Computed example of a mutant assay.
Amino acid sequence: MGRYLDKDLLRGFDSYKYSSLDTSPFSNYVMHPFWNWFLKLVPKNIAANTLTFVGFLLLPVSFIILSYYDYDFSKNSNIPRWVWLMCAFNNFMSHTLDGIDGKQARRTNTSSVLGELFDHGLDAWSTSFFAMAIFDIFGRGEWGASSIHLLMVLNAIQCTFIFSHWEKYNTGVLYLPWAYDLALVGMTLAYALTYLFGVEVWQYDIYYEGQRYTVGFLLECLLYISNYAMSVPVCIFNVLLSYKNGTGKMLPFTESIRPLIPIVLFFPLITLWGAYSQTGILESHPRCFFLLSSVLFASITTRMIVNQMSGTRAQAFNWLLIPLIIFTPICTLYNVDVYEVYILYTYTGFATLAHIDYGQCTVKEIADYLNINVFSIAKRPAKDKRI
């Protein structure tokens, strides 16, 4: 028995079959042909998981460098032009490697449940890095948004991601959103334009019937419409349709919504802390606050994906939320002065290390169970008996 996955859960992976549906014209007629061409440049001895992991690492690299030059999202005009070019490259390569990892697995005949879990588990974290990239370009203040607005944008993007996987938990099919590839390509273009023309290219107003609107505000509204009025309702509709047609897992209602319980707890608490902190912690330390949000979200979502793929019951609570439950009322009702900063950074560091530990242990446990290598296509010696 491993540290996180018991025998019954591991055995559940034996019967798992990957099923997805991508009906996006942009993905099918633009991105996939490009990825098929790019794949020819990749040596066959490189494991698909290596591509996945390298693509993910490019995003925190951009995050760290941007943090060095503009820690609180208020000095993006001071960021050197070469940083934006690097971010464009990192974003492009991350998206590309994420697009070809599955193709490389099939090309090398190394497809496995581990590869999908590895891919989607890292996607659960990288989603937040993509969101924070938007904040770096627009920043805060006159041309950007307040920190609480940025947190709400992050919540909206995270909400769409987890609802897509909740949809799969109930239907068995991952319906890939049309906007996903478009958004990532758009992000690369935004970085490139910022490199060519500076952040000033986004700093202009739009007037309508005498009202002044910033570009950042309009994009924020567009994002809310895309996520809350389109993507999430479609996920719910697909789940309801699967139950009506008898094609879903036909779980009882309480079991079907069980994976959402931790997220229903997480979103209000993280928003309350950020909005009503007595010391204004979100305004003074936004990047760390967003990083904490991204780690907690990734932890919740990755566990749900593990349960979905193994056919086991979803967890109704994530223990990493315990400090959030304790600290939110304390920091919103009382002015704990500088101690709130210590709380935030300690909690972020602890949650990050805990999530990394869960990820690497889970990957190792599944790899040992399947008797495969994580970052190599070389075969392991056959085992006489599995777990």
Rank of each mutant, 00 (worst) to 15 (best):
Q158W: 04
Q211R: 15
Q360R: 11
T279K: 09
F266M: 10
N245K: 15
L57R: 04
L344C: 07
K379I: 01
E283S: 12
A382K: 13
V54L: 15
W202H: 09
A275I: 03
N227T: 15
D98C: 09
P252L: 04
Q104G: 03
L122D: 04
C361P: 00
P323M: 08
K385W: 00
V201M: 13
N90E: 08
N76T: 03
N109G: 01
K249G: 03
I372T: 03
T346R: 03
Q315L: 12
S164K: 03
M304F: 02
G172E: 05
V239D: 02
H149L: 14
I261V: 14
Y69D: 01
W82M: 03
I65T: 11
Q308I: 04
L122Y: 06
W84S: 08
Y224R: 09
A275P: 01
C221N: 06
S112H: 03
V30R: 05
V61S: 10
G172D: 04
S256M: 12
C221V: 13
K40L: 14
N28W: 02
M187E: 11
L150P: 00
Y334R: 03
A124P: 01
L51G: 05
Y169W: 05
I330L: 15
A190Y: 06
N373D: 01
V113F: 00
G198Q: 04
A275C: 06
Y207I: 14
A298P: 02
F135K: 06
N238L: 15
H149K: 14
D101E: 08
D72I: 06
M230F: 15
K168A: 14
T108G: 08
Y224E: 06
E116Y: 10
Y243R: 07
A156D: 09
V61R: 02
I79A: 01
L223P: 07
N76L: 01
N227F: 13
D6T: 08
G359E: 02
H149V: 15
I261R: 05
M187L: 14
G198P: 02
Y18H: 14
I261G: 00
L196M: 15
I372F: 00
P252S: 06
A192K: 02
S164G: 14
F267R: 03
T110A: 04
M31A: 12
E200P: 00
R212K: 15
W319T: 12
L370N: 00
F317V: 08
S376D: 12
S67C: 09
K249A: 07
E340M: 07
F197I: 01
L151H: 10
G102Q: 09
S27D: 08
E340C: 06
L291Y: 10
F73I: 07
K364N: 07
A316T: 10
A378S: 13
L218F: 07
I372L: 01
S376C: 07
L39G: 10
W82Q: 03
R313H: 12
A378L: 11
N90R: 01
R386P: 00
I281L: 14
I263W: 09
S19H: 13
G349Q: 09
D181S: 13
D22T: 07
S294V: 03
C361R: 12
E116T: 09
S62G: 10
G172P: 04
P323I: 07
Y339D: 05
G12A: 09
D384G: 06
F92A: 14
S146G: 15
L151E: 08
P262H: 05
V264M: 13
Y191I: 02
V30G: 04
L218K: 05
F138V: 05
D337R: 14
A275E: 07
A351G: 02
K385L: 08
C288A: 14
